[in-house]
Simulated scan of single mutants.
Amino acid sequence: MRVVAAMSGGVDSAVAASRMLEAGHEVVGVHLALSQSAATLRESARGCCTIEDAGDARRVADRLGIPFYVWDMAARFREDVVEDFIAEYAAGRTPNPCLRCNEKIKFAALLDKALALGFDAVATGHYAQIREAPDDAGQVRRELHRAVDMAKDQSYVLGVLDAEQLARAFFPLGDTTKPDVRAEAAARGFSIAKKPDSHDICFIADGDTRGWLAQRLGEQPGEIVDTEGTVLGEHGGSFGYTVGQRKGLGLRVPAADGAPRYVLETRPATNTVVVGTAELLGVDEITGDHARWCGPAPEGIVSVGAQVRAHGEEIPATAWADGDTVEVRLERRIRGVAPGQSVVLYEGTRVVGSATIAATATSQRR
């Protein structure tokens, strides 16, 4: 196969590219330029797409002896990921930009361009597995599964991929642990074998999401209130808060019992942040929209595992789909589930699909 290896400049994508080449594929390395004003050097483990990262990726490609290109997708990234991120927070939701990037950039824009240029597939350094299994018609279908290394498993952020995208995707690291990947990189002579992993939101290099949003949305002073409407403090914009948040509230009125308080809800229409005690955070009903299925959509009520954070716990649940909408009922309550997050559904290690959380509720079953 002719394969585009997405090379970020990190150790994972470097080893993924080398494994695809070793497997006998015709491999071309591609670094995605996602920033319209890329920094020259990486300043921390946060951030990505610096000129330094592009240089690291090029050096790996040179060592492997494969062609290497930089594809400028900064405008598409800004529109589909960054602007979407800003709009979601302004609307009182908490998005996961990594899922949006996988859906809109790496397995849409990148894959579409690769196919248009005559390539067959895209390979990335994500920690997940693709397995082949027969479908009801006796044909072979590709399924997305969790990685062997659960500490690095990234199947959650790949839960937005559909069957057609999975048919054109390779994840060569899914059967390997991170220490083994670094050891392999060192054995291959890659200078980035010990390069720190990037983390958090790649386009907010200093990690200050609230400050970054304030620069783009402006200060919007408002009130922090309890569930009875009593004013407890002020804030600079409800967009800077998310459900489950405890730190940085700056409440001027302490709770009578001294218990900590958490963000229960943000109300963009009135620019209000509502806080309360931890027990008020518990939910066990989730309604999701923008459903994406990694294979056939489930029929009827199915038993699944539900995960609402990239490295969160999988909770036993039942789920059913109705067009673009998914209803999920958890077997027990969990805290801090915010609209805009994604719920990813599993059957064993297999990813069934995902949806964007539109609403949550607490049932009266308990």
Rank of each mutant, 00 (worst) to 15 (best):
M1L: 05
A14Y: 14
R19Y: 01
A23V: 01
G24W: 07
L34C: 00
G47D: 12
C49Q: 01
T50V: 10
T50G: 04
A54L: 11
G55L: 06
G55V: 00
G65H: 04
P67H: 03
A75G: 07
V81P: 01
I86N: 12
A87M: 07
G92K: 10
R93C: 07
T94A: 03
N102L: 00
L110G: 07
Q129Y: 02
I130W: 02
D135V: 09
R146P: 07
D153T: 04
Q154K: 02
S155F: 05
V160S: 12
A163Q: 12
Q165V: 03
F171C: 00
T177I: 09
K178F: 02
E184F: 04
A186R: 15
W212F: 15
L217W: 08
E219A: 15
E223F: 11
V243L: 02
Q245E: 09
Q245V: 00
V253Y: 06
A259E: 15
L264A: 08
T272I: 08
V275G: 04
A278Y: 12
E285F: 04
T287G: 15
W293P: 09
C294W: 02
A297W: 14
V308F: 10
P316S: 06
A317K: 10
V328R: 05
V328C: 05
R332W: 13
V343Y: 03
V352K: 07
T356R: 14
A361Y: 02
S363D: 00
